[in-house]
């Protein structure tokens, strides 16, 4: 199964909250996870951002040991997923279902607590999840938001070092979302590592230190929230320009990304004036347009298919020059 060799312990490896390498997982002909690499350091609050079907939930299932990868390795604090769960190092708030409707809120927590050899007190987790007032209510009569906070309370029981949230606010109203996130934010302040999957950009932006964009089971961008925002910030200068090569254009001062689409070039930049001036004075460019680019656009562009996008258009949010994507 494993090879044991005498080497010094490298704490950087074992201290990692999550270490995923070359992960693949297929369901029939569908590659849900396709060579995914991801390292999450202890203490990070990471948003796993991508559209439905990007492989977020499958990746989380692999991290929790709910499914076995076809290839690649999963390590959670240096342990195999099942061992990390058994040791109470990782817990999760799962997407839907998963609760017995005929139990009360308190009974659900009590039952789950009894399965751990050590756990936080029932009253404490009810309080921290903000559901102490409804402790005697049947789970079946709880709202979606209340059920989600119950799942959060359950996840707090082992006092995990890593908390994984899979689309935690799906189906909640605005009020429910705000209450849920305020509970999570209070918790993150205690230094817990938090990884949450979401397709809400504003959630990733508001609550994560680091944002990882996934598409087709691969990481397509990885950076701080600010870096991902920069990716989308600025404007797109486009013009008709024959014979241009993206590598040349990307080297133009001020250009973050460049793309050639037919006889038009599209340049993403934080300084549209300078790029426009350059195009009009130093090249044969004509028919110039300047447009805005929102975070939403960048997200959609990075995480969806576009005709003409180069194969495996992978990039990191902070890498720039020669990378060409179909995104701008």
């Amino acid at each position: 199964m494993t090879t044991t060799v005498p080497t010094p312990i490298r704490s950087t490896t074992t201290d990692r909250a999550i270490d995923l390498r070359g992960l693949t997982k297929s369901f029939g002909a569908v590659r849900a996870v396709d060579g995914l690499d991801l390292q999450v350091e202890a203490g990070e609050v990471l948003a796993f951002l991508g559209p439905n079907g990007a492989g977020k939930t499958t990746t989380i299932d692999l991290v929790l040991g709910f499914a076995r990868p076809d290839s690649g390795t999963v390590s959670v604090f240096g342990l195999a997923p099942r061992d990390a769960i058994a040791a109470g190092k990782v817990s999760a708030v799962l997407q839907t279902g998963g609760l017995l409707k005929d139990l009360t809120v308190a009974e659900t927590v009590l039952l789950t607590a009894s399965l751990f050899s050590t756990s936080r007190p029932v009253d404490e987790v009810l309080e921290r999840a903000g559901i102490a007032a409804i402790r005697d209510r049947r789970v079946g009569s709880c709202s979606g938001g209340e059920q989600q906070r119950l799942r959060f309370a359950l996840a707090l029981l082992p006092d995990p070092d890593l908390l994984i949230l899979d689309e935690p606010t799906t189906g909640m109203d605005v009020e429910g979302r705000r209450e849920f996130w305020s509970a999570i934010r209070a918790d993150a302040a205690r230094g817990r590592t938090i990884v949450f999957a979401t397709h809400y950009l504003e959630e990733a932006d508001a609550y994560a230190d680091r944002v990882v964009l996934v598409r087709h089971g691969r990481v397509v961008a990885d950076g701080s929230s600010a870096q991902v925002k920069n990716l989308a910030a600025g404007r797109v200068v486009s013009a008709r320009l024959l014979g241009a090569r993206p590598e040349q254009l990307a080297a133009v001062p001020g250009v973050d990304r460049a793309e050639v689409r037919g006889d038009r070039v599209l340049l993403q930049t934080g300084d549209s004036d300078a790029v426009a001036r350059y195009l009009l004075t130093e090249t044969e460019a004509a028919d110039l347009e300047i447009g805005g680019l929102g975070l939403e656009d960048a997200f959609i562009a990075l995480t969806s298919d576009r005709v003409g996008a180069p194969p495996g258009g992978t990039s990191t949010a902070h890498s720039t020059a020669t990378t060409t994507t179909g995104s701008i």
Partner: peptide
């Protein structure tokens, strides 16, 4: 002192 090194198995050490 020895430590285990990950190999190409499905789950980590």
């Amino acid at each position: 002192m020895t430590t285990t090194l990950r190999t190409g198995t499905a789950s980590a050490v």
